[in-house]
Design a protein around this nucleic acid. Sequence first.
DNA 1: CGAGCCTTTGAGGGAGTTCAAGCTGGGTGG
DNA 2: CCACCCAGCTTGAACTCCCTCAAAGGCTCG
Lengths: 253, 253
Amino acid sequence: MVISSSQSSAAEQQTCPHNNAISCGNCRLGTICLPLALEGEDIVKLDEIVQRGRPIQKGDHLYRESDAFTSVYAVRSGAIKAYRLTGDGQEQVTGFYFPGEIIGMDGISKDQYACSAKALETSAVCEIPFHRLEELSAQVPTMQRHFFQLMSQEITMDQQLITMLSKNSAEERVAALLISISARNARRKLSKTSFRLPMSRTDIGNFLGLTVETVSRVISRFNKQGLITVESKEITLLDLDGLKEIANVKMDF
Amino acid sequence: MVISSSQSSAAEQQTCPHNNAISCGNCRLGTICLPLALEGEDIVKLDEIVQRGRPIQKGDHLYRESDAFTSVYAVRSGAIKAYRLTGDGQEQVTGFYFPGEIIGMDGISKDQYACSAKALETSAVCEIPFHRLEELSAQVPTMQRHFFQLMSQEITMDQQLITMLSKNSAEERVAALLISISARNARRKLSKTSFRLPMSRTDIGNFLGLTVETVSRVISRFNKQGLITVESKEITLLDLDGLKEIANVKMDF
DNA sequence: CGAGCCTTTGAGGGAGTTCAAGCTGGGTGG
DNA sequence: CCACCCAGCTTGAACTCCCTCAAAGGCTCG
């Protein structure tokens, strides 16, 4: 079985993302999930506390809402969605996480996860036990700083999403998501314009505060307007600038 | 001029919230903004880095979006709103901050504030220079843990807001905000059922992703239904359980 | 005490939802 | 290997909740 999604098969395969023997020092995602300034000795320290698990399958949970909080996770390959359940049992998707990104920081405040995390496709993650990370942060100022920054970044991204949900039209939201995924692909040296959406239309709608039908309609419209081409989950952005114009936001997420 | 709002005049006045001579050790907000477990010597250390400024007036900015990030702030009295500007210059309110709560953590990731912070009424804040806080966190594990928790809490609260904006009706949102303010009042040993809203209807609407008109209509409706009584900004919650039923969410913010 | 802003209330309209029905494609078992 | 199945996706039509526009009342502060 082919483990990687089409998007990770290109560049990430060079140093196999599912290879547990890989270390933080030679991981090609290093500069995304690690502090840039972290140096030799300190990388080794980090390396010692990171646990590299076996791949998790599509649909598997990394952890569930209200599980005891133990670790944060760095996505190594694949894609993870985070979601919480509302009072009446509906799902609310709070984020999609791609390789190099850190998930699970919401669990710190209450010592239990505030979201569930589920694999959208076969994925690999690095588990970072939080108490070890705390110790390391106290020893290595760069590490502490970096982790504060990661959490702050999560706050900023959530606030951008809040703004979008509060102010933007369906077209603006969908365009913004496409651009976001494009930008995150670029950061990982993958195609800016052509990729596979690992999540369902339902998940997209859920994340963007729209119904499936609306998402589908907007995507169809973008297709007809020549902004993108769609073949089920495969997306090509034909007019990135046009999409940015529609999205009408400075997005980082 | 009366400096405190009506809600803070009751209990907080006992140890005057504008009194700069007060220290973290005897601040009556201590258990909210401080780690519960912080002990004698460590409180002194924290105390040394906290700068207590003079009151800021209604409408004054604590900091502005894209100002260089230097400090986080603990609200001592009054109320602060955080907001960001959208691409086309509209305001998006991202949060309201009451005494005992910490604001400014969004600035860490980029070394500049991601929001502006503006006083909704005459307020006092404690300024906590971030580089000093980092040093202290590295020395005092409890402090580091507490600050991680504060940031994580901010993430959790943002995610609750995301869920609300994405799923809930106007009535649910307004009810949820009223309950949130009520709960935060209770934490400060103030009235759960009777308080003054420091923010305008416009701010409420902006925060909740609604127009002023809708907010006004919902509040009028709650009034007619006997759930609350309203006298301009003075609110009394007559049926807290009824409101909770309507809000239909487990809120922390 | 008047100007300007905030709030309330009403009437009409529109973007997105809801409901319903057909389509598509990947997996399964006969 | 093909027929079937079922989940996910698309498209259409009607409805609804909230927004927009408009106007009048009420506070607050100079």
